[in-house]
Design a protein around this nucleic acid. Structure first.
Lengths: 130, 130
DNA sequence: TAATTACAGACAAACACAGTCTGTAATATC
DNA sequence: GATATTACAGACTGTGTTTGTCTGTAATTA
């Protein structure tokens, strides 16, 4: 369970999408200005969110990005996983008798974190602001 | 809250120390063979454990390493922190209105994980094996 | 004094991450 | 159908972190 800068961007981007829901497509350039990131870099993050089916994109003149998944159904975990992938972090390489026990405790710990992130919706953030 | 390879080594090393408690000092070379790491690299990890007061070292002919902290009082978190330091991972860099809310949820999630790791003792691993 | 041990710090290789650049594909408007 | 506008794909670079090695130094015992 990593938490890179890109993930941090993604969380803020999704919060913004939820806030803007119902309005026109958001296109890359304005979004980049608002987020204060370079458009090309932002593009890479958005593409990952598209592939995870959290947002959708339409090319062409009035194209851009918009929410795809219902705004109340998007958890923090969804967003994080969209960026980080399901990279197995806690993998065991040791071949000792106690190895799997150590690994298990680490996995349990991670699961506690993951469960928390699955319960929290990005929509909650928007609610707290209004 | 990182979990590097060095941390993984440290967990296994400490489990081994707990298992061997009461016996003579463990010196670098045999420990390295048992762990299947190079002695010099192992040395760096052990030194960090020494600085964290989890083990103690004595140089000289019959020297080596042995447990310092009581074996039932060593948590997973103690060991992880000895290696990773208290590196603040979830830091917020965005200057948006909802920034701190996102940060808070991430910190809460990490705390869930950390609490789990504080509750689990490395001694539990040894118990499960006997 | 000599052997044995741990310790310190510089060093290099490998990898991951952040961010850029260039070109391509799809859609709408005229 | 041509053109402008949009997103998409992939190579590329720079930087920082991690892993691991090498060399030499300090402390303790025999």
């Amino acid at each position: 369970m990593k938490y890179t800068k890109a993930t941090n961007y993604a969380l803020h981007i999704m919060a913004y999408f939820v806030k803007q829901e119902g309005k026109d497509n958001l296109s890359l350039q304005p979004l980049a200005s608002h987020m204060n990131i370079s458009p090309t870099y932002l593009s890479k993050i958005l593409t990952q969110l598209v592939k995870a089916n959290l947002i959708q994109s339409t090319p062409g003149v009035n194209g851009g990005y918009s929410l795809k998944k219902p705004k109340t159904e998007i958890s923090f975990y969804d967003i994080i996983q969209a960026i980080e992938g399901s990279g197995a972090l806690f993998t065991c390489e040791m071949n000792e008798s106690h190895a799997c026990h150590i690994e298990k405790i680490m996995k349990d710990a991670e699961e506690k974190m993951v469960n928390h992130l699955k319960e929290k919706r990005i929509y909650d953030i928007v609610l707290k602001m209004s």
